[in-house]
Design a protein around this nucleic acid. Structure first.
Length: 1151
RNA sequence: GCGCGCGUAGCUCAGCUGGUUAGAGCGCUACCCUGAUAAGGUAGAGGUCCCAAGUUCGAAUCUUGGCGCGCGCACCA
């Protein structure tokens, strides 16, 4: 006996039981052990952070990340799945700050870096439990016990090795960078943070005159007009930029009569904007001259403030290669100048703008001895320094008004207005405007590797493909050096120590390397902390503040000490280093890294394009591409430099939105917690919804309704088939366990050894069809899954389940109900065949679907296989091999023809429906006209008349001999074939073919195989293969038309047919009544009919035996029913009938 | 502003290299079947395939330009 199956499945409860089984029986571990020594399928887990709650988006990634390793394991490969946790970074610090009720760096320092770091380390695991339970509940098999953790000492040291290697190769350097600076908080903000803080504000917009100087250095009456919305940057002005190929106009105010106003200055602005300034000023101007931008370049001007221009300061510096030039307050050419707004002349303050800084960087190499220095009169706290006395000690933005007033007083303010634009503010303190500000920073020379990264990218199998050349490729094209350092606390410390007297630096590859330095000191700081608090994690040895205390003797200056720089690094470098750092490589884990690099497969959402996808690719390309790493410990070998690495294929998942199509947000409550879905529908339902609902890269709208609706279509249907099988196998005593001694893997070849198993070639056509479909689907699914196309694979599996349910089982019902038991070779062989076929199919479907819906398939396997064979078979479906299809069972002809029958049956039902003839009513005949079937297929169909008759409840089925009675034919050109050949003649040919008499044309095709069409534009030869024949039913028949056939049913009814219809109607009524009485399938009844209708009475008499048989009526009488019977009066097609039923109890065997 | 993606039925989405009547599931309506039964089947209603121009014998599909939405960039990696 199989374990009886509930008709109404409780998937969630079922799944909990399966989870317990997996846990207790160590199935995941066994699935790996079983593949020991096999070829590997390498998977990298992109580390999530347990600092936040997991949400539905993580369910999607975890489903996909589980699917392929599970699949590949079943395909025979060894796929270890090492978990990982991303633990560093600003978000952790922010969480801790929130808990502490502080938020500036000063407050952190005040609280103490040491306790702060301790809090960070604890915070990292805050939602650990939720993450672990989600991971288990959704069926994501991954080894969390051995997970890598980015703050662990071994991990940090691995990252240190990478950084030291880059440093030694000159790829890690210190430079300046203009950042968005939160002055009040004393920190730069990351991209996400700045993006969140944009607000629309009105800033002052000022047009300022920069008087040009004559050769003697005296101001002239001619002024550049520059435009800025940040007046506070004017004291740090160093250049004015124009565009070389733009014309500039010199304009001067005129009186109403058109004469120049006495003493009015001449303004230089872009010619394209020469009209806008007079408009703003509401004055009239006339053009004095036009100058090309390039002719302005090199001229000197008087800066708006003399902050950096004290009397006697040399204004010229020596140029590289001879000559001299003013080093500042000079006009330069720049491409970023536009005429979209402003004046076409850009005020350049390199300290306070990224493009401005770029101008300075371009200028400096022109000069001897470094060229112009960066001028910065603002302190890190956002206040002016004493260099600019007017604003000294005040926040820069607050000085805008005074600066404008001062310019006006000195006659330099040409115009002032308000300008409304988006400007970033601090996301945590939204009244604090951010400013662009120069900070010293450490960079990695990624831009030098741009071409290598592009070459590497070109070899990656991106899904969807457009990521390669699109989002990711574009991003690589515009690569700039990676700003690595962060002036924060909780992160991997930058392993660079600097000589306190010479400023020379070196990088160390490990903590041991630090300890090995001469005169090392400061390690006792951690030791003391550990002594005071024995629970202190040793991992913190390599973190701030302890590592900062470690110093050693400088190799650069005797007597000096080496001290670590204060920065930590961008946490994206941590996660990007995981391919090797998860093993602690190269210090440890050499074997693991050698066998598990690169990954065959990774998958994350599209937001990782610039995150993990990039950081992995960049780090891997820099370290392992080309000549490979510069330094490796003795005996350690670098991986091959062949691209792609570190991953070969990457599924980029779409963004997940909430129920309302908006971004998921806890506060909006626009999504259901994963736990709610698991409890109501189960993990399989959620997984199937993700995998089969849409291609993975589409933006997905996560809604409970869609998940709920996706359950019946696949899971319930599969369950129904399974439940059907178990019910009848138990009734019939079909038990493979007693028929098969050596079950092996329960593959086709194994089943062949069973007693009572007949070769498929000997079984009924339906069985051959089912197993052919199974094999074809298996082959197709494998092909799709190997190409990472699970969406297509899921569609095939779904179609297969539909075929089992709605064709095989439905067509086989009579076989399962047939007489004779199926428990031995001596029984009903056809019934036995049906069981073996359904058994094999169910096992096959379950195994195909196992990576997708691992729970329900495990349930099926546990009952159908393990329950019968015990430990002779794999204890879990996930320990079996993935079906690839039996080539010997494939039968493309049969599959095609069965599709044709199903189509004909479907059309027949449609034809009945159109004539309002219900299927209960038998009809005399159905005829089919095939539009375009081969003679073999037509003959095959004719031979399957029984099948069609049964499906359609008709007495006779035939291929129509006189099709012209029912249909008309028209000839249609096959455009795909004729189009390329005929080109412009096509419309004429189409008209000719459509208008011509179809019979004549068909006759011509039959005779010659082709026809010649004389068309106005020439002659066209059309072969029989170039046309399609379309058949259309004539009016007046109960007919339905499909692409390949027309089906006509005979609507005429004879008295016999009507009587039979009535009888079936009554059977239906009795069955409904049985159901109402809650009778078992096998309960017998005493039945009596009472009717005033002679016609109905006669019909019931005629079909008395079949009615009794179908309804399990032990007695069938007419008149009043037996005592105690229920009575129900109904209307049967206009005839009154009272039905009396008395349950008699269980019958030993079914009829 | 720039880049990428998307726009197809009431909803969620397929639709490969251009081809004849644009599909599926769900929902709705009607009918059917029912010894899998809180399942199953058939049909109907519902579409200017976002708009416009172009290429072509032929465009949902290719090109260009708009419009709308999302994401990314604009700090930065």
């Amino acid at each position: 006996m199989f374990e009886p199956v509930r008709g109404k499945p409780d998937f969630p409860a079922n799944e909990l039981a399966i989870l317990a089984f997996w846990r207790d029986a160590l199935i995941y571990r066994k699935s790996l052990e079983q593949r020991a020594g096999e070829e590997r399928f390498v998977f990298f887990e992109g580390p999530p952070t347990a600092n936040g709650m997991p949400h539905p988006g993580h369910c999607l990634t975890r489903t996909i990340k589980d699917l392929y390793p599970r699949y590949q394991t079943m395909r025979g490969r060894l796929c270890e799945r090492k978990g990982g946790w991303d633990t560093h970074g600003l978000p952790v610090e922010v969480e801790v700050c929130k808990a502490l009720g502080i938020h500036s760096k000063a407050q952190i320092e005040e609280y103490g870096v040491e306790p702060f770091i301790h809090r960070c380390q604890e915070s990292v695991w805050r939602y650990m439990k939720e993450w672990e339970s989600l991971t288990e509940r959704i069926g994501f098999w991954i080894d969390l016990s051995e997970a890598y953790v980015t703050y662990h000492k071994a991990y940090v040291e691995s990252v240190w090795w990478a950084l030291a290697d880059l440093f030694d190769r000159g790829l890690l350097y210190r430079g300046h960078k203009i950042v968005w600076w939160w002055a009040q908080g004393g920190t730069a903000l990351s991209s996400g943070e700045v993006g969140q803080g944009y607000k629309e504000v009105a800033d002052p917009s000022v047009f300022v005159a920069f008087p040009l100087l004559d050769d003697a250095g005296k101001p002239t009456n001619r002024c550049l007009v520059a435009w800025t919305t940040t007046p506070w940057t004017l004291p740090a002005n160093q250049f004015a930029a124009v565009k070389a190929d733009l014309p500039y106009a010199v304009i001067r105010e005129t009186t109403a009569e058109g004469a120049f106003v006495d003493g009015a200055p001449e303004f230089v602005v872009a010619a394209a904007l020469a009209a806008s300034l007079p408009e703003k000023l509401k004055k009239t101007f006339a053009t004095v001259a036009t100058i090309a931008g390039r002719d302005l370049v090199g001229r000197s001007y008087l800066p708006p403030f003399d902050t950096y221009r004290p009397e006697g300061m040399p204004r010229e510096s020596p140029l590289v290669g001879g000559g001299r030039s003013p080093a500042a307050w000079r006009i330069v050419a720049a491409d970023f100048v536009t005429t979209d707004s402003g004046t076409g002349i850009v005020h350049v303050a390199p300290a306070f703008g990224e493009v401005d800084y770029g101008v300075l960087m371009a200028e400096q190499p022109r000069f001897e001895s470094g060229g112009p220095a960066l001028l910065n009169c603002v302190a890190p706290d956002g206040t002016f320094t004493d260099e600019f006395p007017m604003g000294s000690g005040r926040f820069v933005k607050e000085c805008d008004r005074d600066i404008t007033r001062d310019l006006k007083a000195r006659g330099l303010l040409v115009h002032q207005e308000q300008f409304v634009h988006d400007y970033p503010f601090c996301w945590r303190a939204d009244s604090d405007p951010l400013i662009q500000y120069p900070r010293a920073s450490w960079f990695i020379r990624t831009s030098q590797f741009r071409d290598a990264m592009l070459a590497n990218n070109a070899r990656i199998d991106w899904l969807p493909e457009h990521i390669k050349a699109g989002r990711f490729g574009n991003f690589l094209e515009t690569n700039v050096d990676w700003a690595l350092s962060r002036e924060r606390y909780w992160g991997t410390p930058l392993p660079i120590w600097v000589c306190e007297s010479t400023g020379r630096a070196e990088a160390v590859p490990s903590f041991a390397a630090v300890l090995a330095k001469p005169g090392v000191a400061g390690t006792e700081v951690f030791d003391r902390a550990k002594a005071a608090n024995p629970d202190l994690s040793d991992d913190l040895r390599v973190h701030k503040p302890y590592i900062d205390a470690v110093t050693y003797d400088s190799p650069f200056a005797p007597g000096s000490r080496m001290r670590r720089v204060t920065e930590v690094i961008d946490c994206w470098f941590d996660s990007g280093a995981m391919p090797f750092a998860q093993w602690g490589w190269p210090h440890t884990g050499r074997e693991d890294f050698a066998t598990q690099f690169p990954a065959h497969f990774i998958s994350e959402a599209i937001d990782q394009t610039r995150g993990w996808f990039y950081s992995q690719l960049a780090i891997s390309t820099l370290l392992f591409g080309g000549d490979g790493p510069g330094t490796l410990p003795e005996g350690v070998v670098a991986p091959a430099a062949d691209y792609p690495h570190p991953f070969r294929a990457c599924i980029v998942l779409g963004l997940m939105l909430g129920e309302d199509g908006q971004k998921m947000s806890k506060s909006k409550r626009n999504y259901k917690e994963p736990g709610v879905i698991f409890d109501a529908y189960g993990a399989d339902a959620l997984r199937w919804y993700f995998l089969a609902g849409q291609p993975p890269w589409t933006t997905i709208r996560y809604s409970e309704r869609t998940i709920r609706e996706s359950v019946p279509e696949f899971l319930i249907r599969l369950w129904n088939v399974y439940s059907f099988f178990v019910i009848y196998a138990n009734i019939d005593g079909f038990d493979p366990g007693t028929l098969l001694d050596e079950p092996g893997c329960l593959d086709h070849a194994d089943l062949a050894k069973a007693r009572g198993w007949r070769p498929v070639s000997k079984r009924s056509e339906l069985d051959r069809w089912m197993l052919a479909e199974l094999s074809a689907t298996a082959a197709g699914v494998v092909e799709k899954m190997d190409a990472f196309d699970h969406f297509a694979a899921a569609g095939m599996i779904s179609a297969l389940v539909d075929g089992v349910s709605n064709w095989f089982v439905r067509r086989s019902r009579d076989r399962f109900w047939g007489a004779g038991r199926a428990d031995s070779p001596q029984g009903n062989l056809d019934k036995l065949d049906a069981y073996w076929t359904l058994y094999e199919t169910l096992l096959g479907v379950a195994r195909l679907a196992a990576p997708f819906v691992p729970f329900v398939t495990e349930t099926i396997w546990r009952n159908l296989a393990v329950g019968r064979f015990g430990d002779k078979v794999a204890e879990s479906i996930h320990l079996t091999d993935y079906p690839r299809g039996e080539p010997g069972l494939l039968d493309a002809d049969l599959v095609r023809r069965m599709t044709l029958v199903r189509e004909v049956a479907s059309l027949g039902r449609a034809a009945r429906a159109s004539a309002k003839l219900k299927v209960r009513q038998p009809l005399s005949k159905v005829e089919v006209i095939l539009a375009d079937a081969s003679p073999d297929d037509a003959a095959w169909l004719a031979a399957h008349a029984d099948l069609v008759c049964d499906e359609l409840n008709v007495k006779q089925f035939e291929i129509c001999r006189e099709p012209d009675r029912y249909i008309t034919r028209s000839i249609l050109p096959d455009l795909k074939k004729l189009g390329p050949r005929l080109g412009k003649l096509l419309p004429q040919a189409r008209d000719a073919l459509t208008k011509a008499d179809a019979q004549t044309l068909l006759a011509a095709f039959a005779r010659d195989g082709r026809v010649e069409l004389s068309l106005p534009g020439g002659t066209a030869t059309v072969d029989r293969d170039d046309v399609l024949i379309r058949t259309t039913p004539r009016e007046g028949w109960a007919a339905a038309e499909g692409p390949r056939a027309v089906v006509v049913v005979a609507a005429g009814l004879t008295p016999e047919l009507v009587a039979e219809g009535l009888a079936r109607e009554v059977v239906h009524a009795v069955q409904t009544a049985r159901k109402g009485l809650d009778l078992e399938f096998t309960d017998t009844i005493a039945l009596a009919f009472e009717t005033a209708s002679a016609e109905l009475n006669s019909a019931l008499e005629q079909h008395r035996d079949s009615i009794a048989g179908e309804t399990l009526a032990a007695t069938l009488t007419f008149g009043a029913g037996p005592a105690g019977a229920t009575a129900e009066t109904i209307d049967v097609d206009g005839h009154p009938l009272t039905i009396h039923i008395l349950p008699l109890g269980r019958q030993g065997e079914r009829a």
